[in-house]
Design a protein around this nucleic acid. Structure first.
Lengths: 212, 212
DNA sequence: GAGTGTGAAGTTATTCACAGCT
DNA sequence: AGCTGTGAATAACTTCACACTC
């Protein structure tokens, strides 16, 4: 009785994916420096991990390296780009048009990697109607239809904590498949929607603990 | 031959500390809701972890709960506040006066928890001399003496990736003990300096992988 | 010789499950 | 009865070490 072979994806841990993302950035820098190949040792040092970790992570997806030589910088970068889904563009919308939203909106790294913001929402009448670099801030009441009509796939939440779950629910109703939450509160999403959190308070508080 | 008892601190893992920080936020909300006690089950649900995890995490630092009843909301919150070092204030400086810096500078959560920004630095002559809510943006050349003289303990880095390691070195020379880095690059710090990273590209890329 | 790929070993973190207190 | 505190069991992740390839 043959046991079905699990897809590579199913064996991939979240930490591995995050490191892949780090390798991707290092490989981008190495491209700029004109390097043709890189060893797991060099890649590890610049990514802040161990060489064994690099090899394990990469071996999950294929045999990209040459023994005695290392990994080819350009093709490995392309492989990771494709693995991470960065060889296409992603449509995003942002709810909560405050200072953090402004910073994300202006962040050049995002469009450079295919992440584009196509809609902005807020509940504050003073903000609704503002134009950000050609994009109009809309009422949060329009979130569901706009997200649906413009095929937004990723929702960014930069509202205050109290509004975050409501906005999250709206994004889900609008059909997004991923949410990046900056509000300092746990969000509940249904099966099939991916959630990532960035909590600045946790980072500072864990620093505070370490310094105490 | 008696083996010396390790201090509680040495057994505390980074994930535990980060969860403590999440519990702290939930307990703050529960205070506002007028709850006197909370069970590990209720706390776990609102923090997004398992009840056993809550009990394990809290038991590292003491016996805060009452069997049959749960944990006292107010005193548990105070305990965690003290454990995390949030019962004092922390002096911070920010290098890289861009959009993200502006968002952090305006983030009300920080001063509310004792994290205060006392200095701003940039290398761009157009930004040096700007006043942000009464605080003048200074040249990055003044970073070391200013950080030293104003007893800054935590450095925030929101510069482009290319400048991040240099600024980091300056913060270390100025005597900070902790650094929170937002630049998408690995930083090297000497022993004794704590480093935390917030990498927005990694978050989006790991989402991208999950959605692919 | 240099450096990958990978099973095995080791380490760390989470969950179970239940004794014991209130 | 309800819920904590915690050793034991399990699962997840990382590092080791070495056969193998270029």
């Amino acid at each position: 009785m043959a046991v079905p072979e699990p897809l590579p994806e199913s064996r991939v841990s979240e930490p591995s994916v995050r490191r892949l993302s780090a390798y991707y950035r290092v490989l981008g820098a190495l491209c700029g420096e004109g390097e043709n190949t890189v060893s797991s040792y060099a890649l590890a040092r610049r990514a802040g991990v161990t060489p064994a970790q690099v090899r394990k992570d990469l071996s999950i997806f294929g045999h990209f390296g040459k023994r005695g030589t290392g990994y080819p910088v350009i093709t490995l970068r392309q492989e990771i780009q494709s693995i991470l889904g960065l060889d296409r563009s992603w449509r995003m919308a942002l709810a909560g048009a405050g200072n953090l939203a402004h910073a994300l909106f202006a962040y050049k790294e995002f469009p450079a990697e295919g992440f584009h913001i196509h809609a902005l929402f807020d509940s504050d009448p003073a903000k609704i109607g503002q134009t950000w670099n050609g994009l109009v801030v809309e009422s949060v009441e329009r979130l569901v239809p706009v997200v649906r009509e413009t095929s937004v796939e990723i929702g960014l939440i930069t509202t205050p904590a109290a509004a975050a779950q409501d906005v999250c629910d709206l994004f889900v109703r609008g059909g997004v498949r991923g949410i990046l939450n900056f509000a300092p509160r746990k969000l509940f999403v249904p099966e099939g929607v991916s959630l990532r959190n960035v909590n600045l308070a946790i980072e500072l508080e864990s620093l505070s603990f370490a310094l105490k």
